[in-house]
Computed example of a mutant assay.
Amino acid sequence: MSKSNHFSTKSVFGQLISLIDDSLIKKEVKKCDSDRYTKRFKTKDHLISMLFCSFSKCTSLREISGAMLGLSGKTAGFQLNHIPKRSTLSDANKKRDVLVFENIYHELLKQYGSFLSDSRIKDIINKQVKIFDSTTISLFKDILEGVGRNPKTGKKKGGIKVHTVVNADEIVPEMVWFSESKKHDHQFLEKLKCDENTIYVFDKGYNDYRAFEHFTNHKTGFVTRIKDNASYIKIEELDINEQIHNGVLKDEIIEIEVKRVRKYRNYD
Rank of each mutant, 00 (worst) to 15 (best):
D97L: 08
R149S: 09
I256A: 07
N241I: 09
E174W: 00
F188W: 03
V261H: 11
C58P: 00
F13V: 06
E257P: 06
T43W: 01
V100N: 00
Q79C: 10
K39P: 02
S179F: 05
G148Y: 01
S181D: 03
P84K: 00
S56V: 11
T135L: 11
K74T: 12
I244F: 12
R62G: 15
K95P: 03
K152V: 12
L144D: 03
Q15L: 06
T88C: 07
R40L: 14
G113N: 03
Q111V: 09
S56P: 05
K193I: 11
S65H: 03
K227C: 09
G159N: 03
H106C: 07
V165K: 00
G154Q: 07
Y112K: 04
I254Q: 07
F140I: 05
C194A: 14
T9N: 15
D97G: 08
F178Q: 07
S90E: 09
A230D: 12
N103I: 04
Y264H: 14
R62W: 06
F78A: 03
V162W: 00
R265I: 11
R96I: 05
H6E: 13
R265M: 12
I137D: 08
N217P: 04
M175Y: 00
N93K: 10
K85P: 01
M50Y: 08
L80I: 03
K10C: 07
R86W: 08
V201E: 02
D45V: 02
R62F: 07
A76F: 14
R36G: 09
G113M: 02
L69Q: 15
H184P: 06
E63L: 07
D33F: 10
H46Q: 14
K95R: 15
V165P: 00
T136M: 05
D142P: 01
L99M: 12
V162C: 09
P151A: 07
K26N: 13
D268F: 14
L139K: 11
V261K: 15
G159A: 04
L108Q: 03
K44F: 02
L116Y: 06
S117Q: 08
I121C: 04
R210A: 09
N5F: 13
S34W: 01
R260T: 13
H106Q: 13
H214K: 11
V258G: 02
K122E: 12
